[in-house]
Design a protein around this nucleic acid. Sequence first.
DNA 1: CTGCTTCTCGGAAGCGCTTCCGAGAAGTTT
DNA 2: AAACTTCTCGGAAGCGCTTCCGAGAAGCAG
Lengths: 335, 335
Amino acid sequence: MSNTIHDVAKQAGVGIGTVSSVLNNSRPVSQATREKVLAAIDKLDFVPNSSGRRLSMGRTNSIAVIIPYFTSSAQIERLRGVMSVIVESDYDINLFTVENAPQRDKVFQTVPRRGRVDGLLIFSLNMPDKDLKRIRQGEIPTVLVESSHPELPNIYVDDIAATRKAVEYLADLGHQNIAYVGDILEDPLGSSFNQNRYLGYCQGMENKSLPVHPPFYRAGWHRRAKGRQVGMELLEQTDRPTAVFAFCDELALGIIEAARELNINVPSDLSVIGYDDIELAHFAQLTTVRQHLFESGVQGMELLLNTIDTPNYNAGSIQLETKLIVRQTTVSPNQ
Amino acid sequence: MSNTIHDVAKQAGVGIGTVSSVLNNSRPVSQATREKVLAAIDKLDFVPNSSGRRLSMGRTNSIAVIIPYFTSSAQIERLRGVMSVIVESDYDINLFTVENAPQRDKVFQTVPRRGRVDGLLIFSLNMPDKDLKRIRQGEIPTVLVESSHPELPNIYVDDIAATRKAVEYLADLGHQNIAYVGDILEDPLGSSFNQNRYLGYCQGMENKSLPVHPPFYRAGWHRRAKGRQVGMELLEQTDRPTAVFAFCDELALGIIEAARELNINVPSDLSVIGYDDIELAHFAQLTTVRQHLFESGVQGMELLLNTIDTPNYNAGSIQLETKLIVRQTTVSPNQ
DNA sequence: CTGCTTCTCGGAAGCGCTTCCGAGAAGTTT
DNA sequence: AAACTTCTCGGAAGCGCTTCCGAGAAGCAG
């Protein structure tokens, strides 16, 4: 069994209060006593039991990060941003991945509790009002990333405008048959980025007086293999599109694979735009909408830490920029 | 403030012991009482405070996962495997990323403690003996992934043989000038996979009577951009290699980018082999050594959970297979 | 009705820590 | 030297839970 603060106190010949004081610098201790205590701590290789500390202090020093679509590169990149700031802090990260509605509900019901974590960082999920109420009542600081809510601080991106511009770019190149590949519209986890991007797509098409053609909407989830499969379906249609907007880069790469397989040349026979600008988009020379994923994790976590540490921190919302990065998968269509 | 077990007890008109009993099914409770308690729990939206529970039970229900090189796709894929098994369990994940020696030391010194976590899953790091002693003394169950130690259960891969075979494959294609791109040999974090792969490379070269040419050893870390830079250096040499083994796929892709930039055709002018078979290797048609990354996370976590739950579980080591996946970045050299 | 066993349950003790009250020592002033 | 003030520190109380002792109720046999 590990040593406790009592062992240290006995070893140093002092009281437990004194040991606690030197551990936390919570009250002045004479130099001589401090040294005795430090020597005892060192000798016994003592580290305070975190459960005891949590209970008596009423804080946990840990933060929950809740992440759906954990298979997506974009989420991972955000998480990297989160970790880069957390290593500099005293907080631990509790990682919760969420794949379906029951998992999400369980997490939302049990995790945002006093004594469980000191803060919540939620990626891409919209908060059901019931769970939100609990967060507000328990006053556990919460920040949303890639999601927004009038009452909660968040980091977001103007998905609609970004997608609209990407689609308009395709239209300006001369494309008329532009497909949208995303996720199913009524997302069971309650994320809204797919709806937003689809909305942006519709707006772009409308602005350019192009028709939104239902067979050109495809749901393909977040991975390349799925994109390839959906790409095959899409491109095997007799009346196939000349350009595709994919709501994430993985999907875009899958579509390029499908095209390759069907001997459809990208970009001369098919233009493809992705979204996110993940690491590999550069390798693939993919035209895409860059959003600052790593940065979103950094900012989200910094916002959360500030909210936790400074009681009345006025945590507003932060909008991150996007930028269309034109590479080599988009050109004007063949005449 | 949240409700406590006392509030529930009062609300239900029973004692706290009874509430605890129905929460944990730890002793029989009459149907009538149980229903009163459940109603009170429901009404007060009560979830037991985890800090209190941790302290009194002496277990934390959480597991630390310690991950270096968090920017690498391979580690992420392992983590995905870990998360896929953890969601089915009652454990939480505490995620620790480690980027340098001080961080590693701090984590090894403070995390493997009773009252902190119930188990440790360590990726890719070798345990210093001093820290290992603490783990053994405190008897906190530990499993290593991509690392091995005579006293600790682990999940590993025969890096040496896998690399040797990959290099021999290149030699058999007719390559004589084969470069190795990996990390610096004396890794400050104390991982051994780079050494092992380099050793495999040397063995392969020796088996085929090929010289190990020092300028053909390059250290490039784990990301594409770095691989591109190292690739430039390597390929701008007057006497450049005709084939490259890269110790991870990201690096291999970076080298292909460098070649592209220097107008060196892959594969006809330069063959490239990677390692890991990450998601995007398929897209890039990269010849690579496949290891079962996701599976390594799954198995590591399952092994750990078994070790925690069944006291004398005989957790041995598990070797995972590798396989050379030949795609389109390797051919015989030009005559 | 008595003496036994079996059910059911209340609540004190204790997990390891921090906080805080107050006691004693040391230093200062008059 | 007495009366303060200031330092220093011991250890009880309490954080919210689980466990466990033992008490009372209920059931049963004689």
